[in-house]
Design a binder for these strands. Sequence first.
DNA 1: CAGTGGTCTAGACCACTGC
DNA 2: CAGTGGTCTAGACCACTGT
Lengths: 241, 241
Amino acid sequence: MLKYEVIARDMLATIENNKMEQGDQLPVLEDFVAQYGVSKNTIIKALELLETHGIIYQVRGSGTFVRGHRRQGYINLIENQGFNSALRDFKLTSVILALDVIAASEEVAYNLKIDVGQEVYYVKRLRKIEDRIFCVEDSYFDKSIVTFMNEQIVSDSIFQYLTKGLNLKVGFSDQFLRAFKLNQENADHLKLSVGDPAILVESIYHLQNGQPFDYSKIVYHYEETQFFAQGNSYYSLIDFD
Amino acid sequence: MLKYEVIARDMLATIENNKMEQGDQLPVLEDFVAQYGVSKNTIIKALELLETHGIIYQVRGSGTFVRGHRRQGYINLIENQGFNSALRDFKLTSVILALDVIAASEEVAYNLKIDVGQEVYYVKRLRKIEDRIFCVEDSYFDKSIVTFMNEQIVSDSIFQYLTKGLNLKVGFSDQFLRAFKLNQENADHLKLSVGDPAILVESIYHLQNGQPFDYSKIVYHYEETQFFAQGNSYYSLIDFD
DNA sequence: CAGTGGTCTAGACCACTGC
DNA sequence: CAGTGGTCTAGACCACTGT
């Protein structure tokens, strides 16, 4: 493992163990350099990593400080990885409604950048948190990348299987979110009524080499789910005078 | 302006001018080093900046590539800055419903980390995109930071005033999002019906030194708005085996 | 195994914050 | 103006990808 990664994890552990809170100051760079016996730039890299994860913020000329706690029970829109990191304190279970190899529709082919008719794994699941249904998920996986799936895998965390089992390296993702009125089918699944609000999130996950491998559409129960996102250092690449 | 920032903007301009698309490869590091006459690490910093903005992705051992276009018309949840960067191709206008100095309620005080009763600017606006109402916004600004506001300022982009006028340096933000059923008041504003879906986004913006200065609650018209977020390099600081 | 991006170093110098 | 984080350099070496 990389030095700056090891250091970042150690710093995070220290923050958590010491129950440090919003605004608490971390040691200065020079002290970290002495403590870990690495160069200044390596410490800076470790701190950058923590900063992009929303754990600290740095103020030039002043110091490095702990960034406050997120609200509890919100799903992180960006770092969700199939929820397990965001909701790992809760008991998650799944009901599998479908697991098939099908031919890609136009929509699926477009989003996975494959040809219409090419084979994809189709997985439909109800997901429960502490036995309450909180979403209905339709996922499509490019079968040329995700070469195998079964009921066992799909009932657990698919992402864990992909990264640890198939050793896929997940790169970046796009998330699209909107609200709409529930139709009959999804209302039945979520035990809500037709016309009730729902949130739809479309996600496209890419490998580190840029290839899309997972296109998912998730409909969330509006009373069971709320989302969270963190923004960093708000300056734009684009001038808007 | 910083070297790596200048270079990043120049690279972005080149990508746009040459209409480069998803998957197109950029010059290799060495070429950039020669082209811009700076050290390798400076080029890496410039590319990192573009990567965190979702403009490119880098593949170790392979190259640097352009990341595809976002869908049109989606609001970027993270980089919105009061929308102007995300929606700058559209005509945005505002109807001011309130502009007052008020005493902070418990909710406002909590989110701005000030004392209950302390003075805040309260701004309520309807926002229109091409003359269609797309959201109702309630904003609270810590008056000890945002020392002055008037109708003129509030009818334009408040964020522009804060950064260019008051010279505030915006740091990080937290965004909380959920769906709910519209009440009578907001239904009237948005010209929808009671019980229709809506998205509520609560935002807390902080200065670079960590002080919160803006707490906003925005209710979005579910048919007029959709959101967008990009995730990068999906590995987690937390092991989850 | 050639080519590409990533890590790490040691050190000079710069820019900002807050007393 | 002391103290803090940020930029930039030049170069050695490492790690991954794809042919």
